[in-house]
Write a protein that binds this DNA or RNA. Structure first.
Lengths: 213, 213
DNA sequence: TAATTTTGATTGACTGATCAATCAATAAAA
DNA sequence: TTTTATTGATTGATCAGTCAATCAAAATTA
């Protein structure tokens, strides 16, 4: 069997398998055997390539974050104005892949794990910061800094909250409705807050591409 | 040692111990021994009274919900108008007990568990429904039904989201700020939505006490 | 080209640790 | 004496992680 160069193939297969198994099972309490079986290899091979279960799990969450970033970069490519970029960020957060029940279950499992694993927490903090700071960057083009910060915090919380509520699967809200609710929030608070006098309508100060990376 | 009537005492001690251990450990993957030790009894006794670990965990989440309900009843006692009741609901959600890191960690662990345990999910669904329907009841006194429903959904999501974000402990938001953000949301959306023509300012149609039970 | 050695890929079988759950035994009230 | 409370000891199952052995491609040598 040993065709050389299997390593990257197997690593990817195992990470994908881990994600699927965790999503299905709804917990990180899955066995290496489960994951290896799903990937079509022996448990020993999983240990061979990742050293430990923890390491495989870490790689799995990294892969989840990488995917999210990729989606974000694509979505932000098309956005031109700060307001459009805000909508793009919202839309990405509720992207169909991310909204699949298994993916939500996996995220949730990692959130719980973050209470114990310092490294898992680090990754989730990166995600949380990225979401907040991307929102913030565009809000600052529309509002004074202090208002922008409050609204960024609120929008991030609403996105995460809609996501979590989805995990219970009772009265599922749906992608479009989730986007609409978040947009409503942004519209209402943008309207009720006095706009930034300097930056409004002028050439936006920030239009750097690829901020969300 | 056997003084009769220990059962309720031990049950409570074990449930409290479970909550503390789960909160500290940040996961349901705690052993019966850990819990029993914390409660000052042998692991065998925990099994004697609860039959299984799962059952003890179920009782633990029930106790968490009971506490939340108690707080809510107290907070709603003082509220007079629908708008006051809305604020009371928000305040209760961020009540200090609920906001303690160990409590947040425990909630999170149960959310994750709900992906597997039908019974755990049932309890969390009850919580989610209760939050939504309490918000809804008072919003309907201020707004047309469809707008009320959207805003109830949004507010519930924001509350849960602020809660979850807290669990990462990076840039903690704090109780007061969390309340303020949710109030901002309510104020902004109440202002930007045309009020219910019939009910506004008149004697509210719904002022039944103890709705949040 | 043919024979060989080396190296990467892969696994089955095993180990040690951990835990939920059980149970028989004990001790003290009623 | 019967009932209730309590535990130490044990069991059976589950898993992460290890290891020596195998297999076949690739590299090297003849």
């Amino acid at each position: 069997m040993p065709k050389v160069g299997m390593e990257p193939v197997r690593r990817k297969a195992l990470v994908d398998a881990a994600l699927r198994v965790i999503g299905d099972h709804g917990s990180l309490a899955v066995t290496m055997s489960d994951i290896a079986r799903q990937a079509g290899v022996s448990p020993a091979l999983a240990h061979h390539y990742f050293g430990s279960k923890e390491q495989l799990l870490i790689e799995t969450i990294r892969s989840l974050l990488r995917q999210l970033r990729r989606d974000a970069v694509v979505a932000l490519k098309q956005a031109r104005t700060p307001r459009e970029r805000l909508s793009a960020i919202v839309r990405v957060s509720f992207h169909a892949d991310q909204f699949a029940p298994e993916t939500i279950a996996a995220w949730l499992a990692f959130y719980a794990e973050a209470q114990r694993s310092e490294e898992t927490r680090r990754f989730l903090v990166i995600y949380a910061r990225r979401l907040r700071s991307n929102l913030l960057a565009d809000l600052k083009a529309l509002l004074p800094a202090d208002a922008a910060e409050r609204i960024a915090e609120g929008a991030a919380a609403m996105i995460d909250g809609l996501y979590i509520r989805q995990s219970l699967k009772s009265a599922p809200i749906g992608i479009e409705a989730s986007i609409a609710l978040t947009e409503d929030y942004l519209n209402a608070l943008l309207a009720s807050t006095s706009p930034s006098p300097l930056k409004e309508k002028g050439k936006p100060l920030r239009t750097i591409q690829g901020q969300m990376t």
